[in-house]
């Protein structure tokens, strides 16, 4: 069973890399934040899998901190950033909202 874990971890990381498209394209701030939360969940599983592969169970603490602080990021986003970003996009109703511009350069 242990031989499957590295493949699972690599698959989940591939999932994160593919999901980075959501952060790039949005379109709204909520999409980007949900993508980040999905990455946090995947990272928890990856770290737990690596803990079982390497047998160093101190890594379980890292997963524990991930899970606690992902909740904090989500709460901060909902109660602070989201409303501010929505207001900013309402103010600039004539132009595209700040979350919609897809340029990096």
């Amino acid at each position: 069973m242990n031989q499957v874990y590295p493949f699972l971890a690599a698959g989940l990381l591939l999932n994160i890399v593919v999901g980075l498209v959501r952060i790039l394209r949005g379109p709204t701030a909520a999409d980007r934040m949900l993508a980040a939360e999905m990455f946090a969940t995947s990272a928890i599983v990856i770290v737990l899998l690596l803990a079982f592969v390497t047998g160093s169970f101190a890594l379980v603490d890292v997963a524990l901190i991930f899970s606690l602080l992902a909740a904090l990021a989500c709460v901060t986003f909902v109660s602070r950033a989201w409303v501010a970003l929505e207001q900013a996009s309402d103010d600039a109703a004539s132009g595209p909202p700040p979350g919609d511009r897809g340029d990096t350069q």
Binding site: I16, I23, A29, R32, A36, F39, V62, P98, G99
Partner: peptide, 21 residues
């Protein structure tokens, strides 16, 4: 480099996550 500040912040959070990994 992201022009949109929120995208930059989300990228930074995910960067910290993957850096820990």
């Amino acid at each position: 480099r992201a022009a949109d500040l929120f995208r930059a912040v989300v990228s930074f959070i995910v960067f910290g996550l993957l850096m820990a990994v």
